[in-house]
Simulated assay, not measured.
Amino acid sequence: MRNTARWAATLALTATAVCGPLTGAALATPDAAPASLYAPSALVLTIGHGESAAVATPMRAVTLTCAPKASGTHPAAAQACAELRGTFGDFDTLTARTDALCTKQYDPLVVTIDGVWQGKRVSYERTFGNECVKNSYGTSVFAF
């Protein structure tokens, strides 16, 4: 129960930090000019030990904003945004390298992605068998 509360608190704080600036657009008057020509793309990415987000022990959380420019606490924001644009925001198309060699040790890690991608709400969860398998994806999106 304690891990679930800590996980929920982490997500709530990070979501507030990322989505807080987006709420101002909803308060604009109908005749006001749009603040940006880009649809918002702001994500909160988390990683934790466990088989699912519901039971995982949180390790890290980062923010990633891709429009109008790459920013956030993600260590490779520009590369991660470029990869997501290349897949049109489809996280399932981020695949593992074929040359990666990992053990079959089972120490599950779960990665979650929540937020807005090009104006549409997204929620994604992927469980990896261990950290080597996660790193074998060779994408900047999961490298945090």
Rank of each mutant, 00 (worst) to 15 (best):
E125K: 03
Y106C: 04
L13D: 15
D107I: 09
L64M: 11
T98V: 07
Y137V: 06
V122G: 01
S41D: 02
M59T: 12
T65W: 02
A15G: 12
A53D: 07
A76L: 12
Y106L: 10
T95N: 10
L13C: 12
R2T: 13
G129I: 11
S52M: 02
D114K: 06
P68L: 09
A70E: 10
L27H: 10
A9E: 13
R85N: 10
G115N: 06
S52Q: 05
L13Y: 09
T29P: 08
E131R: 10
G86N: 11
S52A: 12
A25K: 08
P30S: 07
Q118M: 12
T4K: 13
C19W: 09
E83S: 05
L94R: 03
Q118E: 14
D31N: 14
Q79A: 14
S123L: 10
C19N: 12
C19A: 15
P68V: 09
L11N: 07
T4Y: 11
A15T: 09
T63S: 15
L94I: 15
L11A: 14
F144H: 00
F91L: 15
G138Y: 02
T57S: 14
A61F: 01
T139Y: 01
S52F: 00
Y38Q: 14
C102M: 08
V111C: 02
D92S: 12
A15W: 03
A77S: 13
K69S: 13
L64Y: 05
V116S: 03
C66T: 07
E51C: 01
M59R: 11
G24K: 10
P58G: 02
E51A: 09
C66V: 06
E131H: 06
T29Y: 09
R2N: 09
G72F: 01
L109V: 03
G20S: 13
Y106D: 13
A61N: 03
G24H: 09
V44N: 04
Q105S: 07
R126H: 06
S136Y: 04
A70D: 10
A143V: 04
A9F: 02
S36I: 01
L27Q: 14
A8R: 13
G138T: 04
A56T: 02
Q105W: 03
T14S: 15
A53Q: 05
D107R: 11
R85A: 15
L84M: 13
S123M: 08
D107A: 13
Y137S: 06
F91V: 04
P58H: 02
G72P: 02
L101G: 06
T93A: 14
E125L: 04
S123T: 12
A33D: 14
A53F: 05
L45H: 03
R85I: 03
V133S: 05
